[in-house]
Design a protein around this nucleic acid. Structure first.
Lengths: 234, 234, 234, 234
DNA sequence: AATGAATGAGATTTCATTCAT
DNA sequence: AATGAATGAAATCTCATTCAT
């Protein structure tokens, strides 16, 4: 289904994003080779995530990070040339996790749209259920730090949704694919954001999955087909 | 229709939010009674909004605000006990403006849902078209300053949408009103946010209004009814 | 003779240097209008000079300056946008003092070269006798901070010396004025620097004045003329 | 003439400076006995010189040095107990090179003063032409690190010039040898410094050599003698 | 009421030096 | 002998807030 194991095979033949050009000042300063170094970097990233979720971006100071990570500021700057780079690294790591979840299995493409849509919705919610607070903060922090939000998740979502709309076009009402994609991804993201900040427990609620799936299918004009992945869509 | 002139009459009998008297430290220090004082407060709020949109929350310093407003920092602190209070005041003002736009005319309630839905969508987009950048920044700033996002706009939207869902229930598919309200408002907000930051020109694009209206109506099961406010919904 | 009182009348009709283009980031942040502010600025500049002479450029930290000046770092940055700007300001003040000393009286131009040369040498030494240590440190600091050394004193010296060489040309051996000016000013400066750092007491020693004057006059081929300002030049 | 080959024979019987065994903390930590160690030390010194000229004293960090030298910081500290010691070592090496250039051949002492003076001037300029930038930076760095400038080069120049003044005294005007030596060396150094920083191309210009030689000879009263080393002195 | 000079804690970042491996 | 990860004091600069005038 949706998992990290098939990161390399893309069902829909979506082009992998290029190796992410890195400005010299913004990428991690050195790759930690020794075990100790690896542990340090991990501790720093973990501490950053923790503070971000606990105290928000404003409470995130390099000193605080170092302290919580149990290392010195110097060590932090040994691996990350700046606070910005540190956040970028965290974003990248987070995005990688999300992508692992959101990359569908190739075998799914033959499935009826209802099934696929439900899976997609569920995967999205699950992806955010990992660490909703972190996601929210990273979203805010990323922007300040110059990571365009598009890269964040949407790019993935956009490509995925567009591909689905095109593949299943015969079964759908006539759509302006561009606009529909924009709207679907926008609406989904908005939902996730709202659920995340107001009702995190819904991230794993099947009722919500159903309802969002229904919204999607109805929007694209897929009502007449009988049965969704779980129950009737009306 | 939807405009600032009927700020005082609430079509759908939505409860006015209480006069918002909060903690002693967070509300404006003194009610500006004289005209000059009122002007000063306005200047400060305007300056704050301006800097917020131009340079973001990080570029927003009390000294900069005072300077742009043409007053001294001392004066600023005479009217606002803290930066936080200042932002709260700005948020309140902004919310008031949005509400003015989003409060529908009583006579509309009899109209067919298609018409009302379209108006609602249009009003939402228009509301954000006022100053999308400010809206986005305020959204972020508000959170930092402790204004829960709910209060922001959603509470308004929630009440409104719930009322509509209940009023038009007979024409709709069976819905969990709570959940549907949450989803509709969340999706709409997500859309607005995305449009605002990625395609601001769409805030006034009729195609987008149509598409969102369609999404709404289809979601609530209002498909079979012929014609939306403007054109066929498929 | 040489003093601050005739700063505005330039004997040799030397063009005043233009108002010194100031980059926005490098000039003092605000002109202190209130008396208290003036005092603060003065204290800061004095403290800077003091630390510079006592502990050198490396011992010069903005915190140390503020502390010695008896103000807070914040105040320092209120008037000087950066450490660099602070040093620039100090340099300017110092240069102004030096120029006041080095600007000759118009009536001197008729005098025999021996007299003028001696006065020039004496003035140069006196100028540096003001605060030799500060001069030396400013010279080093200025470079790091981007003040071209030329501006420092040399520009003045160059123009002055060239003018003299041209005016008295008939009495001198044939000279490449350009080269000779460069050499004379360079040699004088080198002397000053060496005296300053190794034998500051010589800055006011008449024997040294005599010897340097002799060197100058002999170099330009003015030996045969009888009598210098004080005694025979050989 | 003046070259590195006769480093061991001192024409004018100038006392060699003692082997320089200073405070225990400031001299190289261990005498590198093995070839590899020698190579390491060389690499470190070369890297230091390089960074010094490329990025100045402020850009000189021990970590940067180690990296450029291709060794670890640890190794650097194995051979030099501190950054200060490292700079001292570099200064010493540089001074040794300069001395090699500035130590005249014994056979020259019989030559007419004009010839010798010209050679001296030329050798001085050539010495600095080796690496003017390095020289300038070392001059500044040395002071910070406590190497008194006297030791730097001047001591050499002083001894040399004093010896010449005494040897040729009969042909010169009556001089206070002490003072004259001080002045000559000071002026020469000042010139070098100025040329180095403002007109490095003049370091090898014969016109400049002539002019400085002329200045020297005229100053010491050697005018009447016909002909300098190259052309007439006026 | 208003002014704006002054405050100072705190943020980011650097770099000489140490020491476990 | 060599490595390079780790240290942490210290430097520059910002900005919300206070208070004497």
């Amino acid at each position: 289904m949706y998992n990290a194991s098939n990161r390399s095979r893309s069902v829909l033949a979506l082009a992998r994003k290029p190796p992410t050009r890195k400005g010299p000042q913004l990428s991690p300063r050195k790759a930690p080779t020794q075990a100790r170094a690896r542990a340090t970097v991990d501790a720093i990233l973990r501490a950053t995530a923790r503070i971000l979720t606990r105290r928000g971006y404003d409470g995130l100071s390099t000193n605080a990070i170092a302290q919580l990570a149990g290392v010195s500021v110097g060590s932090l700057y040994q691996y990350f040339p700046s606070k910005e780079a540190l956040i970028r690294a965290l974003v990248e790591q987070h995005v990688a996790e999300l992508e692992a979840i959101l990359t569908p299995d190739p075998s799914l493409l033959g499935q009826p749209l209802e099934v696929l849509a439900r899976m997609l919705v569920k995967a999205m919610l699950e992806a955010h259920a990992l660490d909703p607070a972190l996601h929210r903060e990273l979203l805010a922090a990323a922007e300040k730090v110059g990571v365009p939000q598009k890269q964040f998740i949407r790019s993935r979502g956009d490509v995925l949704v567009r591909a689905l709309l095109e593949f299943y076009a015969p079964q759908l009402r006539p759509l302006d694919v561009e606009l529909a994609t924009f709207i679907i991804v926008g609406a989904m993201e908005g939902m996730e954001l709202r659920i995340t900040s107001e009702k995190p427990e819904w991230l794993t609620d099947e009722r919500v999955v159903d309802e969002l799936t229904t919204m999607l299918l109805r929007y694209v004009g897929h009502i007449s087909v009988t049965g969704t992945g779980r129950r009737a869509s009306s």
